[in-house]
Design a protein around this nucleic acid. Structure first.
Lengths: 196, 196
DNA sequence: TGATGTGGTTGACGTTGTCAAGTAGGCTGG
DNA sequence: CCAGCCTACTTGACAACGTCAACCACATCA
């Protein structure tokens, strides 16, 4: 029987996410999060050790969510060869738009994460699985045989990251506008079409 | 006669930049900046009104610096057609590596900037001048006549932004390693080569 | 001479992140 | 049955923080 009231740790992370979504990660306080979750002011320190630890926890959750989203998108039928990269990049963008606070914690708050072995390992794993995807695409004939895999991987990662940032920062259209997704798709397709 | 001791305002911005470079923008305090600049704890509030105001001032300076760097790179001889886009992107990456605090303020602290008319205007201007660059490239025959200018502009902006983020976050190699610049160049060239 | 800025300072207020210490309840071995 | 330990917090204190009102010294100019 799962409890209807979530454990304190998760309640705190949920509150953090909710508040960060409105105000930006940098502008939410530990005590505020604790208040919002109905706990005492020192509860965050109890679970996460420090503010930095709490952000790290959110980043870990974010990386897990992102990985799930991307895998799920990849498993949908109909995308083979080069199209797989379109699916991958658009899943990344969708994740950024759906979980801006998590995205911020993972990709835009690097100072707190530097040197965290677990986080670096997971990030390396994410890059590794992207490399596998690119290799699969090549095996399926979607990439020229002389394409440099590492360059394609980094190029694709950079473009996905860039489009996601543009989308989050409102440079592809006002918040919630479907034009954002359309612009993102145009950009991504343009990019994928240009791969060697 | 310019004074050897800069005015308080600029001393504060310089201190903010120096401290943020070591610790990340989010982890420097107003009072700390004031101390570092040799001023009283309330000096930042006097000049910038609030913490947010101070970050806005840094972002404004950053946008100006970026604009100068890119223009200067573009004026160097030898780059015509498609090569202009390589020069542009690499200037962007160099700026990010040389001024990480400014880059953070401009591109990774959007909450503080939302709704600031002056900042939005300058950002729109930056995008506009990128558009002009792309149009020039097409006029020089560097782009197919049926290329969609807007998509190319956004694609280029996204990739430049992404590569810069990768570089700053240490994903192209350890800090200061010349391999970073080499990787960035490979990625950018791969991207530009794929444009329609 | 006096008004008006400009470029700051001082001091106070409420709030924040962190830490040491305490507490309440559940589990486990003897 | 109960002592000991673990988990999941709370309480209270501290220094540091951002902001604000008030003040000060000097320059400019009518």
């Amino acid at each position: 029987m799962e409890p209807t009231v979530v454990a304190g740790r998760e309640a705190l992370l949920a509150s953090l996410e909710r508040l960060a979504r409105e105000r930006g990660l940098a502008n939410v306080g530990l005590r505020e999060v604790a208040r919002d979750a109905g706990l005492s002011h020192a509860a965050p320190a109890h679970f996460f050790g420090s503010r930095e630890g709490m952000l790290r926890a959110l980043a870990g959750e974010g990386l897990r969510l992102l990985y799930e989203d991307v895998c799920e998108a990849q498993e949908a039928p109909g995308a083979v060869g080069r199209e797989r990269l379109v699916v991958d990049a658009l899943a990344f963008v969708r994740f950024a738009l759906a979980h801006p606070a998590h995205f911020d914690a993972v990709f835009r708050t690097p100072a707190a994460l530097r040197g965290d072995a677990q986080f670096e390992a997971r990030r390396a794993e994410a890059l590794g699985s992207l490399r596998e995807l690119v290799e699969l695409v090549r095996a399926e004939g979607g990439l020229g045989p002389d394409a440099d895999i590492d360059t394609v991987v980094l190029q694709h990662w950079a473009l996905s990251h860039g489009v996601a940032s543009l989308a989050i920062d409102g440079m592809l259209g006002p918040d919630g506008d479907p034009a954002i997704a359309e612009a993102a798709e145009r950009i991504v397709r343009g990019h994928v079409a240009g791969l060697p």
